[in-house]
């Protein structure tokens, strides 16, 4: 229920307003620091009063996040942040609600809540710190660890197939789906901003380096020597061009992507234009799966931005209005004294 109070003016907020009095306790060099720094840049710009921001997390390194931001926050139990966040948003739709989670928290123990949050399209922003390892419990494989990865609980290599978080979110019906990297501060801040401003569920996978247990997992994508060949930036309305000299492009042929060598064929007019709101399932899924194919780059950016869907809370509020219009606002008298009543003298 919305409160009848005077809210603070969000236009005066700065990064510092969101700095909590708690000392950050991630390992030095952890990718989480960058995500925190970018979030603090985004929060003052949302036009949302500070008291209306709620950050919910589960358990894991990433889930310490709420302590480090001076907003309302719950550090809850493992995997369940989406459930709590849903209740918060439905109780007071004016609130801006974030879920900060990790690959273990969000996709393993909390996988069920994650997919259902996506399909319901509740206006919540989910940021998944994907480091492909369990950090807080000290180095077991996670549901996004690569097959064959040697970890504390897989000394001979994992024999499991990893989840692809982007594909999961797309398949579950999230209306905003994006990926960024902890090291790419400028890109990350932009993606977080767009996610936070999206109406409906927004999902951001952030490749996050765990310096202790899985250092260098994304180095190909962040090392200046290799990243141009291994990362393709998605930009709405533009062809997908990458490579050391911007000399490669993604070409859509027979329902899959191929790499076009622009040195050989410099024509870019007939290339597929990235369309965030195309709703083209085959193209979306091919893009989400691209980096699983050897030799293909990893797409970074917005995979889907669908603004057309009604949010869950809009649906709920509309229904409450409609029923109230039809039946009238219920009173205690009607509540008790309805149905087949009879009187005993």
């Amino acid at each position: 229920m919305a409160l009848n109070i005077q809210h603070t003016d969000p236009s005066k907020l700065t990064r510092d307003d969101f700095t909590s009095n708690q000392e950050t306790r991630w390992c030095p060099g952890c990718g989480d620091y960058s995500i925190l720094a970018q979030m603090k840049k985004v929060l003052p710009d949302l036009g949302v009063p500070k008291e209306n921001i709620v950050i919910v997390s589960g358990i894991g390194c990433s889930s310490r996040f709420p302590y480090y931001v001076d907003a309302f926050g719950i550090h809850s139990i493992h995997g369940r942040a989406p459930a709590i966040a849903s209740g918060i948003k439905l109780a007071n739709p004016e609130l801006k609600v974030f879920v900060m989670t990790g690959d273990g928290d969000g996709l393993s123990i909390g996988g069920n809540h994650f997919i259902h949050l996506c399909r319901r399209n509740i206006d919540i922003t989910v940021v998944l710190f994907n480091n492909e390892i369990y950090g807080l419990t000290k180095g077991q494989y996670s549901p996004t660890s690569l097959k064959g990865q040697v970890t504390k609980s897989s000394p001979y290599g994992t024999i499991e197939n990893p989840f692809n978080p982007i594909r999961m979110a797309l398949a579950s019906g999230a209306t905003f789906v994006a990926r960024s990297i902890d090291r790419e501060a400028k890109h990350l801040v932009e993606i977080l901003r767009r996610a936070a401003e999206h109406k409906g569920v927004s999902f951001v996978e952030v490749y996050q380096n765990c310096v202790i247990f899985n250092d260098g997992a994304f180095s190909e994508l962040t090392d200046p020597k290799t990243k141009k060949d291994h990362v393709v930036y998605l930009e709405d309305g533009k062809p997908m061009i990458f490579g050391q000299n911007n000399d490669k492009a993604l070409d859509w042929k027979c329902n899959s992507y191929e790499i076009r060598d622009l040195n050989k064929n410099s024509n870019t007019d007939d290339l597929l234009i990235h369309d965030e709101s195309s709703g083209h399932a085959a193209a979306e899924f091919a893009l989400a799966s691209l980096h699983e194919i050897p030799g293909m780059p990893t797409p970074i950016g917005v995979f889907r931005d669908d603004k057309s869907e009604e949010t869950y809370e809009e649906g709920l509020i509309n229904q409450m209005h409609e029923v109230t219009e039809k039946k009238g606002k219920g009173t205690l008298e009607q509540l008790l004294y309805s149905g087949k009543t009879y009187t005993i003298e």
Binding site: L3, S76, P82, A83, S86, G87, A91, N112, H113
Partner: peptide
Amino acid sequence: FQAEDEIAGIGSALGASYAGD
């Protein structure tokens, strides 16, 4: 709110309580 499981049932309720319902 018909939740996806028992856990989300109570989780959402706890969230709603936290936010004032």
